[in-house]
Simulated assay, not measured.
Amino acid sequence: MPDPRDAIAQLIDIMARLRHPETGCPWDQVQDFASIAPYTIEEAYEVEDAIARGSPATLLDELGDLLFQTVYHARMAEERGWFAFADVAAVISDKMIRRHPHVFGAAEARTEAAQVAAWEAQKAAERASRAETGTLAGIPTGLPALTRAAKLTRRAARVGFDWPDAAAVLDKLEEEAAELRAEMRNGSEPVDRERVKDEVGDLLFVLANLARKLDLDPEDCLRGANRKFEHRFRFIEEALKNEGKAPADVDLDRMEALWGEAKRQAAGKG
């Protein structure tokens, strides 16, 4: 197993060489924080995908890609005289020690619930030190929208602004669906696209909160639905291919029949 300090030092050196203004890679030389940020987000999702697939080899590779993103941003910051990779490591180390006094300090061991409360209190103090005030301060705008919706209302719930239970959220969901239906002409065509967009947003927001009230991750729920749709649609394509056809060659009734078969097969495996 390689020495972690040597491995990190090598990676930092590789990044510096890629960014060298004279001998570096032409593509890397011209990148900035904004251009690299989408890759950082993509790599985080690829880590999640490797975990979901249960592939240690892929996870190893994707964690390396994600680490490289941190090194990349740190190098660009160092070039501007802001901070370096060592500062990034030091800051997160200090933060973890500060947030776990029951492990690294003299505080008594806490139950999980007490630790969560202490963690949130420490995070609130850190936000206050950065002059981030208000109940919703510090929730990144770049989060996936469903995740951010759940985080926004989870934070609001701490001060009592929340539905009493999941059933109440379902009632709200029906209310929002009715409002969306009212904005649709003949049940299909929008009267005002901006108003329809607003109502669809409200509907998604309530769905994110329903997942939260059921102690579910809305992004994980949607990823599961995506995987299920993908699997079933591929079943349709494969079944039609065996008949020498493609989806465009058959009507919707035929595809829905195959969709039902895919569901039955999945249920049988369960």
Rank of each mutant, 00 (worst) to 15 (best):
K172D: 10
K197F: 05
G187Y: 10
G187W: 07
N186W: 05
F161E: 09
D162G: 08
A178W: 04
L204F: 11
W163E: 08
N186R: 13
L203G: 09
V159L: 10
T153I: 13
R195P: 01
R181A: 15
L170I: 12
P190W: 03
D165V: 13
D171L: 14
L203T: 14
E176D: 07
R158Q: 14
R158A: 15
D202Y: 03
A208D: 04
A168L: 05
S188P: 00
A167M: 13
F205N: 14
L180F: 04
D171F: 13
V200I: 15
R193Q: 06
A211Y: 01
V206R: 03
R195F: 01
R185S: 05
F161S: 05
V196Q: 00
E194L: 06
A211K: 01
A182L: 12
R158G: 14
L173V: 11
T153C: 14
V196H: 02
A157N: 09
F161H: 11
K197E: 02
T153L: 15
G201L: 05
L203K: 07
G187M: 10
A182Y: 09
V169L: 13
V200N: 02
D171Y: 14
L180Y: 03
A157Q: 06
R193H: 03
W163C: 13
G187K: 02
E183H: 06
F161N: 04
G201Y: 07
E175R: 12
E189T: 14
W163D: 09
A208F: 06
A156I: 10
D192C: 02
E189F: 12
V169C: 08
A208W: 06
R193V: 10
F205R: 06
D171I: 13
A166T: 08
N186D: 15
R181M: 13
R158Y: 03
R193G: 00
E176A: 02
A182F: 11
T153S: 14
W163R: 13
L173K: 11
D202S: 02
S188C: 11
P164D: 03
A182W: 04
P190F: 00
T153G: 07
E183S: 14
E179C: 04
E174G: 15
A178P: 06
G187H: 08
W163K: 10
V206G: 01
R193C: 01
A211R: 00
L173E: 05
R158F: 03
G160C: 08
E175Q: 09
E175K: 15
D202H: 01
M184Q: 12
D192W: 00
F205S: 12
R181Q: 10
E175D: 07
V169P: 00
L173D: 03
